[in-house]
Nucleic acid binder design. Structure first.
Lengths: 343, 343
DNA sequence: TTGAAAGCGCTAACAC
DNA sequence: GTGTTAGCGCTTTCAA
């Protein structure tokens, strides 16, 4: 039956700063946003009061009133494979100057989870969205399409973007690697990758790879998939399994550098002649490879540049009335390293 | 001079759903939030209309009206060293059931940047904050202290928390590793780490390490710092440099597993007897180590558990009026692997 | 240069 | 079960 005591430490509002400084709320607001003309003395009084009180503006109210939110949603499948952190670096480097802030959501390669994340993000009315991949649920595509903000799908350009796309062609990347391998004289080629039906980019690389092999009259000699666990260790294990099963294989193509690195370490442990007896290649161009005993052949995925370009599209949206449907294709370079025979 | 045409694709509001369904805004709101009693037919009509229109609620307005934001701010120094992604996994695993959503901000180990990130996050009035480390600017501590929400500082407990802390004692961790090394008979010990004045946890580990050495009558025989670049490669380079300069060193202590792995690969390349002639140890217990030719000695940092516990504190805050000042200490286990001599 | 009034889109509290 | 009223804390707009 006690009267509810008003929280003594209630959250501060503009009104509090206004009263403390003897300046109207409106003018306080102007000072705090550096907007309009405010005389130097007034400005000082306000700043002083705000600092003394420890006022933190309420962006929720600000956003509702101004219909403006300086947030950019970034939807990615995973944080743990070191490719997306680098994309984030690219995004941040561009956004940092603009007053826009990235907010990331992780989907774990689950389409339904992605749909939920997109829905949640859109409900905060961000200024733009950056989303990995071109494959989404119908509902997700619909939401994004009617959101009325710039949407940039990244990493991949093999498909039709909702609005904008920035990425590489993974099909082409797979094809190029296969061509290089065949040109180097390898003939019995095995593939190892992740068991992930929703990793569309890995899938497209393999499609391109197999298509190029077919053109050379070849098919994959063996293949092996894994899921979970330490990628480096899985690379070793899969490599051991494949070579036990198919001892005459002369090339190992991995869907990512981490398992490729594991495979390379295993081959070296076994004293195999790399790249003479057997060649290896991965994908991504991760920094880690630089510290290996031998440089694994790979292809960089232009991660930094993709992040940058995507952010530029969002940031530049106000001025450029760039129409939708634009794909920006980047071209990865093949780094043969020391694990493919020189022709 | 043309009259401004109202945007035909204006963002949908509750009102639109209300008109389309012939149900009052209030009831529509109730249906969309599963709140209160709504008859099945009304409910259906509303859901139908909302779906048909593609309505996405405006959380900004909702949050302002309800004074409730289901966001938890997570402030971390970096995404790229594979320790924080695992903390995030722990956080998400707990938050997923609660309706709370993590929002991450990255500081790059810059105190001023951290202050800004905290300010920005608080301005969205989150339900709680999780922040790496116990060292912050005075302004940041003040803001957090008066925010009126649960604050959990993670990773470290060597210091005084603002509200709650969950982590390990890095000083103790360093001490324990030194004791194990000394007990194994190593005497000429070198340290290699990052050149990062603001990585307080690495600093505390080294302090604990040196204190324990001192207690055994020893001092570091050599030390080397790096910054930037591929950690694996830097580990190799620093190791080569240290052993060239101090050939009689018999143990290499690394501030993280990645450079430790590089050092290990280098030692094996050189044909050094590990752990007989020389021992090595890192810190973190990263998954990567499992794929190496030999298991590097390390200490896990309880990352998953830290994330979990921190999230539990935030999520459980409504019921438990847990008072501030609580530190939860976790105890990492030393994993000797194959790079420390058995005693 | 400053202030007053009117909402932004939603929900709490209360009536019906 | 459903509707009405009154704001949430800001910013926009316009007047002074």
């Amino acid at each position: 039956m006690t009267k509810p005591v008003p929280d003594p430490r209630h959250t501060l509002t503009l009104r509090d700063v206004s009263e403390a400084s003897g300046v109207s709320e409106m003018t306080v607001s102007r000072v705090l946003r550096n907007r309009g003309d405010v005389s130097a003395p007034t400005r000082e009084k306000v700043l002083e009061a705000a600092r003394a009180l420890g006022y933190v503006p309420n962006k929720i109210a600000g956003a509702l009133a101004s219909q403006r939110v300086n947030l950019v949603g970034v939807v990615i499948p995973s944080l743990s494979n070191m490719v997306f952190p680098e994309v984030m670096t690219g995004i941040s480097s561009v956004l940092d100057g603009t007053g826009l802030q990235p907010v990331v959501g992780v989907t774990n390669y689950l389409p339904d989870r992605e749909e939920t994340v997109i829905y949640e993000m859109l409900s905060w009315r961000p200024s733009g969205m950056i989303i990995a991949g071109l494959e989404h649920t119908d509902a997700a595509r619909a939401m994004l399409g009617r959101a009325g903000i710039p949407i940039v799908e990244i990493m991949d350009i093999d498909g039709t973007p909702i609005d904008h796309a920035v990425g590489i062609s993974h099909r082409r990347a797979g094809r190029q690697m296969a061509e290089a391998i065949v040109a180097a004289g390898y003939r019995r080629i095995a593939f190892m990758g992740t068991q992930m039906p929703n990793d569309h980019r890995a899938r497209k690389r393999l499609e391109g790879f197999e298509a190029a092999l077919a053109k050379a009259g070849l098919t994959l000699a063996d293949r092996e998939y894994y899921s979970g666990g330490s990628a480096l260790l899985k690379g070793r294990e899969m490599t051991a399994a494949v070579l036990a099963r198919s001892p005459d294989v002369d090339f190992l193509y991995y869907s990512n550098d981490m398992i490729g690195a594991g495979g390379l370490l295993w081959c070296l442990d076994q004293g195999l002649d790399v790249p003479g007896r057997i060649g290896l290649a991965g994908f991504n161009g991760v920094e880690l490879l630089e510290g290996l005993p031998r440089r694994l052949a790979t292809m960089d995925a232009c991660r930094l540049e993709i992040g940058r370009k995507a952010a530029e599209i969002i940031a530049g949206h106000r001025k450029s009335d760039a129409k939708a449907g634009n794909s920006i294709e980047l071209f990865p370079t093949l780094q043969p390293g020391d694990t493919i025979r020189k022709v």
